[in-house]
Design a protein around this nucleic acid. Structure first.
Lengths: 247, 247
DNA sequence: GAGTGGTCTAGACCACTGA
DNA sequence: CAGTGGTCTAGACCACTCG
């Protein structure tokens, strides 16, 4: 049975279900259950942790609402995965103006191993000059180039990444990262701006230089809010828009 | 005790707590409890609806997570209001690049009663030509004009709206709408693009024509997902950005 | 101390899945 | 049919607020 003690400076009270939640998260992080696997049933977990089913339930509820677990009535609770998502692009909020589904195509332009410039190293919590991978790719929707993005990944977690392996990858990129490198993206933060297209961006997106582009700078996190990806994307919003819901 | 029957085509099963939730929502909508008021305690609600406290709790939990109610331990559960929010702009996701708080100032440029053009009437579910109010305003942060927006409101719900009344209003605009017109904004959807500044927008925002601007088209909803506001904003993102969190 | 929301339990039963 | 998650109950106790 977990202890209710808390460290100096922490919250004044940590309910049991949060401690259970932390234990389950630790098992997820440690890979005790693989992506897409079923985790033990609520009754089993309750026995294992020495608490009631209701307490386990509340812990699992929160993890499910954070998209770390997926509940399926009658079947069990499963470790979430990027592989079997309905949407190809989990974090890309771009939609066609006419609402039709996007027939998408992607092309990897480049993949290099280099030393992190300061403005990449800093958000990734690396030292300047640390090894990183830089992937550049172009997404086209209905044969129109729409998204040009640079993806920066810490070298330590993505050893052996090459353009070839990226090109061979079929499903979502995040599923590839999850399977090949054991890095699971949980959540992300974006900063969005309007900018004028550089000569290079204009060329790839088949626009004139200076055309307005949406700039999205994304920082993605894995367990423990550890940053593991920086993305800098330019979106041509002539026929598409970035959608958002405010609550 | 509510009935579990469900209408043709609805979900195959409607749990009790969702029916309770619907009943509470109806009372909120009907104004049985005013904004910022405390609603009855969980025990009272349980007695009133003839269910257990746990069932009421689950209903209230969902309403709190949708920002319709606010729970305060030891005090009670309160009807959410736009008046006492920490943030001045509930739905404006604009942040200064340096992260410092924004000293903001707003100026109402115009307020007219006119007939809705088709592209405004349609999202508001009005007929083309229906009376609407159009409010134009300019927001400045640290003495720099950053946001120019047109706000469109259905005439039927905002009778008597004038520039004067808007200028006199101190707190958030949505608090003003809530208090003066009984229209409470619950959630919103936005479509975001990069566009080139028009001559008019450039003038207000002190930019050159053609400068890249973020365009945000917002549709806000009140109870029952009824649309009651269209906003078209242009944001100068030279020193600010639109932030978003992806889950 | 009384009243509120917050946690935890134990047990019953329901809805759904798949063998 | 057994096993899973989902709902609902009744009751106990805890944490917090305020008079």
């Amino acid at each position: 049975m977990p202890d209710r003690a808390f460290p100096e400076g922490g919250p004044s009270f940590s309910p049991l279900y949060r401690q259970i939640k932390a234990l389950i998260t630790r098992s997820l992080q440690a890979g005790e259950w693989r992506p897409a696997d079923a985790i033990p049933s609520e009754i089993e977990l309750a026995a294992r942790f020495g608490v009631s089913q209701g307490t386990v339930r509340k812990a699992v509820d929160e993890l499910a609402s954070e998209n770390l677990l997926v509940r399926r009535q009658g079947k069990g609770t499963f470790v979430a995965t990027h592989s079997e998502e309905k949407v190809q692009y989990r974090f890309l909020r771009l939609t066609s103006d006419d609402g039709k589904p996007l027939r998408s195509e992607r092309r990897f332009i480049d993949c290099q191993r280099l030393r992190a410039p300061a403005d990449i190293a800093h958000p990734l919590m690396l030292r300047s000059g640390a090894p990183v991978f830089m992937v550049r790719r172009l997404l086209s929707f209905d044969d129109r180039p729409v998204v040009l993005e640079d993806i920066w990944l810490p070298g330590a977690h993505f050893k052996g990444l090459t353009t070839e392996r990226l090109t061979d990858c079929r499903g979502p990129l995040y599923a590839f990262f999850e399977e090949e490198f054991g890095v699971r993206m949980i959540r992300a933060e974006e900063k969005i701006r309007a900018v004028a297209a550089s000569a290079e961006a204009a060329q790839w997106l088949k626009l004139i230089q200076g055309a307005p582009l949406l700039s999205a700078e994304r920082l993605s996190f894995t367990y423990d809010d550890k940053p593991v990806e920086v993305r800098r994307g330019f979106y041509d919003t002539s026929f598409h828009h970035y959608r958002n819901t405010l609550n």
